[in-house]
Simulated assay, not measured.
Amino acid sequence: MPVVEEYARVHVLTDADAPGDEDGSTVPVVLRYDPGGDPRSVLVGLPGRGPGARVREFVFARELLERGLRGPAGTGEVRVWPCGRVRTVVEFHSAQGCSVVQFDAQVLMRFVRKTYAVAAEPVAR
């Protein structure tokens, strides 16, 4: 089964460990779904701060992302909720702090749809 990767630009609203967004610019993130690994999970990779900083990866339930597009979802390390009609906020908690990231909701909806389309493809024998 093919891996789904979607690249997006997001606004980092607050973050203890990622590039600043004080000037209103966006930062790149990667959304990844690997049905060959855990078919119920998605990965979001956030850039770290400073030169040579590693990407921070958060793995969580695809269902959480899907539910968060319609209403507040999550109580642990990842929380998702709609912000108006065109944005979705994802809040990531880790030992390094809290990152609050604002996505274009259409990007997340497109990504979720692609993950279900890939998961529904028949397996070649």
Rank of each mutant, 00 (worst) to 15 (best):
W81R: 00
P35A: 09
G48F: 08
G97M: 14
P28R: 14
P72G: 10
A61F: 00
V86H: 08
T26L: 14
E22N: 10
V90S: 11
E63L: 07
V29C: 06
T26C: 04
G37N: 13
R40Y: 01
L31C: 05
G97P: 14
G36N: 14
T88S: 10
S25G: 12
A73V: 01
D23I: 10
T26R: 15
L65W: 03
E22I: 10
G74Q: 15
F58A: 15
R79K: 02
V80P: 08
R79L: 08
R79C: 01
V78T: 14
Q96H: 12
H93Q: 13
A53P: 03
V42E: 01
T75H: 05
R56T: 14
G74Y: 11
A73I: 01
T26V: 08
G20E: 15
G45A: 08
V44F: 04
G45L: 05
V30Q: 04
E57L: 15
L69H: 12
R85G: 12
S94H: 07
V80W: 12
L65D: 03
R70T: 02
L65R: 00
C98G: 03
V55D: 08
V86C: 01
C83P: 00
R54F: 05
R56F: 04
A95I: 01
G50M: 15
P82D: 09
R56S: 07
R40D: 10
